[in-house]
Nucleic acid binder design. Sequence first.
RNA 1: GGCCCCGUAGCUCAGUGGAUGAGAGCGUUUGCCUCCGGAGCAAAAGGUCGUGGGUUCGAGCCCCACCGGGGUCACCA
Length: 613
Amino acid sequence: MREKIEQLVRKALADAQAQGDLPQFEVEDLGLERPADASNGDWTSTVAMRSARLAHKSPRDIAAALVAHMSDVPEIERVEIAGPGFVNFYLSTAAGNEIFRTIREQGADFGKSDFGKGTKIQVEYISANPVGPLHVGHGRWAALGDSLCRVFEHAGYDVEREYYINDHGSQMDVFGSSISKRYLQLNEIMAQKNVELQEAYQMLLDDREAFIEDEDDSRPETHPYMDAFNESLGGNAYGGDYIIDLAKRFCEENGDAWVSVSEDDRMADFRERGYKLMLESIKATCHNARSDFDVWFSERSLYVPDENGKSAVDRALETLDGMGYLYHEDGALFFRSTKFGDDKDRVLIKSNGEYTYFASDVAYHWNKFQRVDHVIDIWGADHHGYIQRVDSVCTALGFPGQFEVLLGQFVNLLRNGTPVKMSKRKGTGIPFDELLGEVSVDATRYTLMSKSSNQMIDFDIEQVKRQDSSNPVYYVQYAHARICSILRRGAGVSIEEAQELGMDEVASRAIGDSYDLSLLSENVEQALSRKLSEFPTLVENCARDRAPFRITHYVEELASDFHGFYTVCQVLPSESRPLDEDLSRARLAACDATRRVLALALNLIGVSAPQSM
RNA sequence: GGCCCCGUAGCUCAGUGGAUGAGAGCGUUUGCCUCCGGAGCAAAAGGUCGUGGGUUCGAGCCCCACCGGGGUCACCA
């Protein structure tokens, strides 16, 4: 319909100009929009206001000339000029309602477009260190990243989901040492107190609990193991329960065999085994959150030498050096990021010979551009200061404008309005997996998605768990379930049979092959068709603005329009209230179209559309 | 101090330079079940869009300066 109106306006403009009613001028954008208020039509063009200066005429005069030369088409009922010079188009009822049929015919393809033109786009998100479980903050990136990818796919991009595993830096050794120390403590307790592993394990957990409670260190005797743990690792340690879990596991697998081995060997072994386990658990958590990745990219792989003895990092730095962007100072190697607008030049190799995290990122992003056309990294707001240097290096390497960062604000975890206390001692909050066990994936994802990414989120566990009208996800799902129920009733099938047949089949049984949409002339019916027809542009705009959160607002509006329709319009005949069969079929088709778009839209944000609740 | 995000209804937030009622949900108040799912619908009350300038046909949106809240400014990862 957009194209049709575009043609109509172009032709009217050309005719008006040809006949001298309007001066010659070129307009690129006709300013075709959907008015917020339905009383202003189904479509509007702001071309008259836009071209006022070029035409040296008042907007209303231009609009009048356009309307005078506008040809009649059956789809458009009338065209009006309003306000300062809007040209408003009112669709005929039949034309507007055709959207119901279109949706039913296109099914899951409805709203797909070539907006992305097949661009290979990679979205990298979460990318947490494999040294601990994912937390709610990571959960937000999972929901955001995955939903964005789904939207991109629908909008015609060739999408790759990537997780960057930071398995190279010194934090890996800290991780290994932490497990190693806990392992020694378990063995020490078993030997000295003559207790079983389980008991020793419990003692360490209790000890840690006491440590967290004792914030001012007034009762050190209640947490000797935690103190010894911190002391032996110089405070640079991972103190979470999961480290004790891993140590216990290694005790079970190897007994005390590793006690007499050198600290370095033990650390290295535990580090590697712990890493594998942690990564598996992270993958499982992502899968539970319906956020699976195409590529798990290991930072270490960037340091593996090729046949010439050079790693990807070496090659990347050589390339930059060849371009004259590197220099040595005080024994360190610097990248001239100031050439690209950074505040200062950035270190790639420290004076002690170690590579910085940035060095990895240089090679990593270089690698990305060998694979895709456009790169989006989703980072937490605390990484804001890091954008410029990576952007600089992407530009230096020859990919200006192809690197993009989507910054996301943080999540505050609350329970009944009070922050889930994250004492400094505890270090980490509730693992995301544990949260998904308590709150449903649907409610969690929906809540994490419902705000713009540059808005902070207060995630109140109790509030998100609540299954009532205060929780919009259920409002939307209820609308879907309600429609399914109507369609089942229309087709005369049970819930079980419907599961078997699938709702599409149930719907066609209820509706039949032909139906007359021109019968749907109630205001609430038009509101519904209007809302449904917004969906394709919504998907494009969500992709364009990297703002999948708007889907949640749309889906709430659609559910609301449906409920409004449903209370006013009887869909199925009943004994006490007979209904014209043709009208019933048309309304069933409207219901079915709504159901499909609700399911489709919810799927774009990774939320399920239940057939019953 | 530099840079980034946020200030819109009691609360949580939408709002793509467009329409002399600035929207939604929650909360508050009032109606609506002999009938397809009441996890619903209808209505009311509730606003100096942080402040002050500017840009233009037109600003919650763009520019400048302030005021509040949060984040960040490593040869850490």
